[in-house]
Simulated assay, not measured.
Amino acid sequence: MIPGLVERTVAVDGSSVHVAHGGAGHPVLLLHGFPQTHLAWRHVAASLAADFHVVCPDLPGYGASAPPPGDDPAAYAKRVTAATMVALMRELGHERFSVVGHDRGALVAFRAALDHPGVIEHLAVLDVIPTVDNWAALHGAGGVFAFHLYLLAQGSGLPERMIGAAPDVFFGHFLDTWTAEPGAIPADVRAAYLAAAGTPAAIHAICQDYRASAFVDAGHDQADRDAGRTLTMPVLAMWQDPGEVVLPFDPRQLWASWAPDLRTRVLPCGHFLPEERPGEVTAAIRDLLGRQ
């Protein structure tokens, strides 16, 4: 449970979304990443709820949210998930809102901002780049660090069978190696993540999510780029300091190509920014929203 928030299940688009929400004021949607649940926002949401109405759902197929109807990777396209999140916010009474996403959630937030510019007032994306840019950047030894992108996108149930043999080992690998802050993900939260991700249904949903990125989402991004579409709202992009690692891309340059009104932050931590640097993340979100 996130202090100050209540949990409920909301019927949306023929499925159900589990959500924790609370606080009063401007609505802010917080979208988690892989392999997590809405608990990833426990520190940030509790702080923001003092001044905003925060909404923290489990993405479809993750946590306690049902998978989308239909067993096809296209049902997990970020365009579809973004539309589901917009419908969720409408069910909660919010026609316009700001959205903050980390990792997979940031890809959903990015798509929501592109597809629903009249709805999204501010966008923040944490430690991710757009799908089409990500695939273009992965080559050579750099692909080793993103092996899961290739594994999870395989068809024929292969990754489901491999991960299902030892789900705690597989998902625990990322929780343990992607963080630079000891204790940022305490044992009880880590256990909750592993329990949520390790069921056969969740493993399949996660694989479908990554298949959608490989075979659907990149095409949507490329079509928008070819059409010259950009983000019309203020955008914040934050990512971890890579240290001595030489990235095969420049995050600032990539996001600037999509976001004319861009601000950036680089934080000294690992991948899980909301859990490793919640104070800095919260302050940056408040600055983006113009409410200190």
Rank of each mutant, 00 (worst) to 15 (best):
D127M: 07
I129E: 00
P130G: 02
T131I: 13
V132P: 00
D133N: 05
A136D: 11
A136Y: 03
A137M: 01
L138Q: 15
H139Y: 12
A141Q: 15
G142T: 10
L149A: 10
L149C: 04
Y150L: 11
G155Y: 10
G155P: 09
S156E: 15
G157M: 03
L158K: 10
P159H: 03
E160N: 07
R161S: 09
G164N: 06
G164Q: 06
D168Q: 12
V169S: 12
V169T: 15
V169L: 14
F170R: 01
F171H: 08
W178F: 15
T179C: 10
E181D: 13
P182A: 07
P186Y: 08
P186E: 12
D188T: 12
V189H: 08
Y193A: 01
A195D: 11
A196M: 02
P200E: 11
A202C: 10
H204I: 03
A205M: 10
R211W: 03
A212K: 05
S213Q: 12
A214G: 05
F215N: 11
A218I: 13
H220P: 00
D224P: 00
D224A: 09
D226L: 10
L231Y: 08
P234Y: 06
V235P: 10
A237L: 02
M238G: 13
W239E: 04
D241A: 14
E244Q: 15
L247P: 00
Q253Y: 02
W255M: 03
S257A: 11
